[in-house]
Each structure stands twice: as C-alpha cells, then as structure tokens.
Design a binder for these strands. Structure first.
Lengths: 308, 308
DNA sequence: AATGATTATTATCTTTATGGAATTAATATT
DNA sequence: AATATTAATTCCATAAAGATAATAATCATT
C-alpha cells in the first residue's frame, strides 16, 4: 500500500470531516477513499476514524496520528522543494489563487507566456475574491489586490506592483453632466463605487498641492470592477477604476479620463506565499516573472495619456 | 508510486552504496530497487544517484534528499509507535539481536511462550556475539551479556538479569586431578577459559571472607561457551560457565560443581534499545516478559545445589 | 580487447488499486 | 414507527502497478 498517499487522504478526510468531500476534492472515488483509510487503519493497527453513515469522528489515536501525518506530509513536501531548489529547476504544480477581475484581465494574459517559458511547471489557477486560507487549501501563491490581512504569520506578503486608479466616464455622460474640474465637483456626480474589501466611498485625489479626500455617492456600489465598468460604459456615472480595467476603452475613446492633473489612489498588488524553509523555485520564479510582466504590460499607456 | 517505500529503498542504497546489497537486505530484487530509484528520481525531478556499473555515487541533491528521507522515515516510524503506544496493543515486527549461546539456550525457550502470549507481534531474531549497531541495522532490541559499550548515546542499556557463573568439571577429571579445595588450588588445574568480550583469564571468587582473584591457565580459550562446555564434558579441565549452560549436565551428574562455598562472578544481561520519544510497546513488553521468564527459569536449581 | 561484475531493460506474471453499481447503515423527516 | 435520505462500504470487472527472471548493456580491470 502507498502509505504516503493514504496519509494524504486521511488528512484530507479529517480536515473535511467527510469521505465523499475528500474524494471529490482529491479527484478520486469515494470507494478509493474508504479503502485507503481502511488500509491505513490496518497498517497502523488502530481505528483512526469512527464512522457511521451520517457522522464522522476522529478517534483519539486518529487525532494524534493526523497531527503526525500533517507534519510528515509537510516534510515530504519540504524535501521535494529542497531538491527542486538545489538544482534550481522549477517544476511541478503551481497552484495560484488570484482576485477575480485582475485574474481575468491580466493574469490570464501573463499565464500563456509563463507556460511557454517554463514548460515543466504545471499551473492550476483559481480566481476568487474572498480571502482564502492558502495553506489549508493548498495554494502555493495568492495574488491579492489591496492590503491583505495576514492573521497567519507563516505567510509572506510582498508588494509586486502598484495599480493606479483613474477617474473616468463616457463622453456622453460628461456631455450631459459636465466635466468635473476639481475633486469637489465629484460630489455633484453619480459616482460608481467599486468596493474592494473596504466598502468605502471615499476617493482620495492627489496633486502637487496635496491630497484631498472626497466622499462620493451614487446609485451603484459593486465588489466587481467589471460590473462598475459596464455601468460606466452605459453612461451611468463616474467610475474610479484600475488602469488595466479601462485601458482598452480609453484608447477606443469610449471612456474619458477625468481630472488628469490629479493622481487617484494606487492599489497594491501583493504576492502572498508560505514562508517555508525551502520554498519551491516555481513560486519565486512565477513572482519574478509576473512582476516583470506587469512592469511591461500594466502601467504605460494610461499614465502617458493621463499626465499628458 | 509508493514514495515512502521508495525512500526506504533509497536510504538503504545510499547507506550500503550498492543497489544489489540493498536489494538483498530488503528482500527484494535488484531490478525492483532499480525501478524504485528511477521512479523516485522522476518523482523529485532530479538525479539522486550517479551510477555507473562499477561505482555508485550520491549526487549533491541526493545527499540532501537522503538526509530528509531518513528524518521522514523516522517520523513515520514514530507516528506508528505513537499509535501503538496510545492504544497499548503491542504489534508489529520485533527485531531482536542476542548473544549466540545465550540465545540458543535460553532465548530460544522463551520465544515460543512469548509468541503464544502475543500473537500480534512478529519476531525476527539474530544471534550474534559481535557488537552490532542497533539503529543502523534496524534492531529494536539487543540482549547482551556483559557490560555493553554504548558509544551511541541514543541507546538505553538496562540490566535485566544476573547470570551466575559456576566452576565445574567432570567427576572423571576430578578423580584424576583432585578436587580443588581453595581458589588457589585452581592454579594447579587445567582451566578452560571462556572469553566474553574481555579475553581475560582472571577468575574472581567470593565467599563470606571476601573476594580473591586467581589467574588461571589452561590449554583452551574460546569465545563460545558451548565449545568450552564440550571440552569440560570431555574431561579436559575446569570450566567457569554460566548456570544455564551447565545446568542440565550438573543435574545428570556429568558435571560437578566446585568450591560451592564460593560465589563465582556474575555476568549481567542487558537489554539495549533505542531511546525514542515514542518507543513501541512491543519492545518494553518483550523486556518485561523476558525478565519475568528469566526469573522463573534461570537461577533456581543450581543455586540450591551449589549452596546446599 | 576480453573478462567479470553490476545495472538497466524487457517481457511476463502477479498483485494491488480503481471506479461504478449495488448494498448496508444511520439519521432526519413525516 | 415508517420512510426517505444520505453517506460509507462492499462487490466486481477493469486497469495499473509491482515483482521476477532473463537478457542486454555498460564500464573498470586484467
């Protein structure tokens, strides 16, 4: 029997408190899970899980063994990372978690290039705006816009890019409601608010003379910037969106940048990854790669246009 | 692939620096070893062993991985010991190493009783008078007569029995050469010397008035007590042998005990076992069992006869 | 270059694992 | 209490992996 894979199954079952959930998550059949657990129990000579069809409980022995198994699996992982690091060749599966819109618009474009450059690295990408528990869910790397909360001290957060926000609206909307000339003017506009984490409707604008924060209001708040974008494109109001979201439409002339002499807020993009003794090269490799890619693909055009 | 068993194979190959030695020691074919190593290399994505048909060398990566593997295997072991300990049921394979003659005459009799009492414990016994490296050779327990050297501090040595030695010779020999009446008389006899570890021919005898040590001499020194016994039975001289060796012959009258008012030396029997965080119950169980068994089977008859 | 020793490889056979369907078991619902 | 529901287990046919034995290939030694 493959004790190690059985351990992995066991740990997953304990974590999820279900055979079938563990099975589907691991991509194997529930009968296989059942068998592997049985074999493991036979192997160690003790009942690890007390199971009825409706309830699953971990025995005392099982709980102790579970702890050990976690450590062992982590060590096995570490050993493989060590090997990977020693020979410097990135390889293996890289599991990335990323914010939804950012992932759809930017990461999605970077990934094919990365894959072409490093064929020995397999990718598995989940787009997700809710906070995830990296370690528990087995991600190697999370890309997060805005300041991440790091309750878990075993994680490292590294800022890898700044993402400028821009005020914009359609020419048609502006023709109807006028161009704001000062930040204060924004109070008179229907402001389409993108809430990321903080659901604040305070917009901060900075120019040579300093910063000012305006409390804006409007008839839309959304936690997805594409939704805000669509509203803006539909002439519903003024939006404060990330460069990469509006870029295309500004170029096309469908959106116009407002208050170009002001610098709107900058969002930060953070790479978050486990602080491991031997972190696999694939992770740092991807971060380096993506940071470089973003420098080339993120901020150029609008900056020029805006500050022109 | 079963990574864990492949790790075990890999560790053994590195330790022995040979595929075929590892194979025969592990009881598998060398092609299996070859396959498992290949799979492991594929799994970690690095060459672990640089092998030509004549020489085997460990790569830098392999050396680092080897170290990790050892730790992992030890942890897996510990996890299983923990389980075994938590539920108190001794089970699994117990590998014992024991002195040759002692093993043949005493351990051999205790083992069937142990097996009957604890059917879930499998035994593997090696009789061997040379010092063994418990941990390296995978023994759970060594039974050693005479003071063990413990260079390895991770071992525990516990004295579990005293084995009295007795001076004896055949009636026929004594008829011809006379009965020694004092320790000093032994100098006039042909003394058959059993060398255990120390190859000394000093015999120490103790009575109520104190100890005296006699330097004896004779025409036989041997490191095996059965060999000395045979010489004594063949009327060749006076032997100083462990109770369990001569017991039977004394009862039969083929050997006679000498200087009964003196106490010859006592050898100590030590149980030597790894000092582990979670030591498997089977080890302490066997020690307890054997200690008890020896109390009932070792020292009774001759003592009475000798001191009578 | 031939030899001897040792590993890699291949074909074959055996064992073990897998996934899906049927079964059993335990709880919630009625 | 009977039923419905859900989850784990067992059964079975299939697939995969493992071991073995025999062969081929490799390389130091002579």
């Amino acid at each position: 029997m493959d004790v190690l894979s059985a351990m992995a199954v066991f740990v997953r079952v304990v974590d999820l408190k279900s055979f079938s959930l563990a099975a589907s998550e691991l991509g194997i059949s529930s009968s296989s899970v059942s068998k592997q657990i049985s074999h493991l129990e036979q192997h160690v000579g003790a009942r690890l899980l007390q199971r009825t069809t409706r309830r699953l409980s971990v025995t005392e022995v099982g709980a102790a063994y579970h702890e050990k198994c976690q450590a062992i699996l982590a060590d096995v992982d570490e050993a493989e990372n060590l090997v990977s690091q020693l020979q410097g060749k990135p390889r293996g599966l890289l599991r990335i978690n990323c914010n939804m819109t950012f992932g759809q618009l930017l990461l999605s474009k970077a990934i094919p290039e990365f894959m072409a450059a490093y064929p020995d690295v397999q990718l598995e990408v989940a787009l997700d705006d809710s906070d995830v528990e990296l370690l528990k869910e087995g991600f190697d790397l999370a890309l997060r816009i805005a300041h991440p909360k790091l309750p878990d001290s075993s994680l490292i957060a590294r800022q890898i890019a700044s993402i400028p926000l821009f005020l914009c609206a359609t020419p048609s909307y502006l023709a109807q409601h006028g161009h704001p000339q000062t930040p204060e003017d924004l109070r008179q506009h229907n402001c389409l608010v993108f809430m990321l984490a903080s659901n604040t409707n305070l917009w901060t604008l900075t120019n040579a003379e300093g910063s000012q924060t305006v409390q804006v209001s409007g008839d839309l708040k959304a936690n997805n910037s594409l939704l805000v974008l669509q509203a803006a494109l539909a002439h519903r109001g003024v939006a404060n969106l990330a460069s990469f979201v509006i870029e295309h439409y500004v170029e096309e002339g469908r959106l116009e940048l407002l208050l170009p002499e002001f610098q709107a807020e900058q969002l930060s993009l953070y790479a978050i990854y486990p602080d491991r003794k031997y972190s696999p090269p694939k992770v740092s490799l991807f971060i380096e790669f993506f940071q470089g890619w973003l420098e080339n693909n993120l901020q150029q055009k609008l900056h020029c246009q805006s500050r022109a």
